[in-house]
C-alpha cells in the first residue's frame, strides 16, 4: 500500500517535471500571471495600444506645425528657445536662408568629446570611425555613403552640415528627431576635427606642441 503510494507520487513528480521543464527554458508564450496583484493597471504606458485614439496608439505623435515646450539653451548671455528663428535651431542666419559659416555654440573640449561620443553612436556605422565613408554598413549593401573628407563637404559651412544632420540629404535619413540640437552642433564640431586631422598641415599645430608630433621633430616649420 505504502509502496504503491510512493511509486504513484514519484510518477506524478516525474510527470510534472516532464511537462513543466526546468527554469530558464525558452517559452514562446507570455508568462502566466496567476495572481493579478494590480500588476497590469488600466493606465497608459508608452508605445502600447489604446483604442481611444483613431490610430490606436498610446504615445501621441507631435501635432504638425507645433514645437514641444522645453527649456531654453543658454548661449552666452542669451537663452535660445526651440521656436526661435536662431542659427542654433536652424543652422541659418536669422531672417534668411543663408547658412551660418561657423558654429553658433562655443567650441570647448567638452563639446568636442560629446561630439565624438554622439558621432560614434549615430554616424559611425555608415561614415566610419575616421569619416571616410567606409563604415561597416557599406559591406552589407549601403551604396552611397559620403566621404566626409571630400572637398565638397570640407567646403560646406557648419550651418549646412547641421542642416544635413537635421533633415537628411539624398539617401541619408533625417536625424533631427534622434539627436538633440546641441548634440548636432557637437557632431559638426567633431566632423570638423576629423577633417582637420586628415587635411591639416603641421603648421596648424601650435608651435609649442609641434615638437611633440611623431616624425616631425626634425622637420623645420616652414613652407
Amino acid at each position: 500500500m505504502m509502496r504503491y503510494f510512493l511509486l504513484f507520487w514519484l510518477l506524478l513528480c516525474v510527470t510534472v517535471v516532464a511537462i513543466a521543464g526546468f527554469r530558464g527554458s525558452t517559452s514562446r508564450k507570455p508568462p502566466i500571471e496567476i495572481f493579478p496583484d494590480m500588476d497590469r493597471q488600466p493606465k497608459l504606458r508608452p508605445q502600447t495600444t489604446f483604442d481611444f485614439f483613431p490610430d490606436n496608439r498610446s504615445s501621441r505623435a507631435q501635432v504638425p506645425g507645433t514645437i514641444a515646450y522645453t527649456k531654453g539653451t543658454k548661449l552666452g548671455e542669451q537663452e535660445v528657445y526651440p521656436f526661435q528663428d536662431h542659427p542654433f535651431n536652424t543652422g541659418r542666419q536669422a531672417g534668411s536662408t543663408n547658412y551660418v559659416e561657423t558654429l553658433p555654440v562655443a567650441v570647448t573640449e567638452q563639446l568636442m568629446a560629446r561630439g565624438q561620443e554622439r558621432y560614434a553612436i549615430t554616424c559611425l556605422p555608415c561614415h566610419g570611425a575616421s569619416g571616410d565613408g567606409k563604415g561597416i554598413t557599406t559591406k552589407f549593401g549601403m551604396t552611397i555613403v559620403a566621404n566626409l573628407h571630400d572637398q565638397r563637404i570640407v567646403r560646406q559651412t557648419d550651418g549646412e552640415l547641421f542642416d544635413i544632420i537635421t533633415h537628411g540629404k539624398g539617401l541619408m535619413g533625417s536625424y533631427g528627431d534622434k539627436i538633440d540640437v546641441n548634440d548636432r552642433w557637437a557632431i559638426v564640431s567633431y566632423v570638423r576635427a576629423l577633417q582637420l586631422a586628415r587635411l591639416g598641415a603641421p603648421e596648424d599645430v601650435p608651435a609649442d606642441l609641434r615638437a611633440k608630433l611623431p616624425g616631425l621633430s626634425a622637420a623645420p616649420a616652414q613652407k
Binding site: 513543466a20 530558464g24 517559452s27 514562446r28 508564450k29 508568462p31
Partner: peptide, 11 residues
C-alpha cells in the same frame, strides 16, 4: 518568476 518569466522569447 525565475521559472515563469526567464526564457520568454516571443515570436
Amino acid at each position: 518568476p525565475a521559472y515563469g518569466r526567464v526564457g520568454y522569447q516571443p515570436i
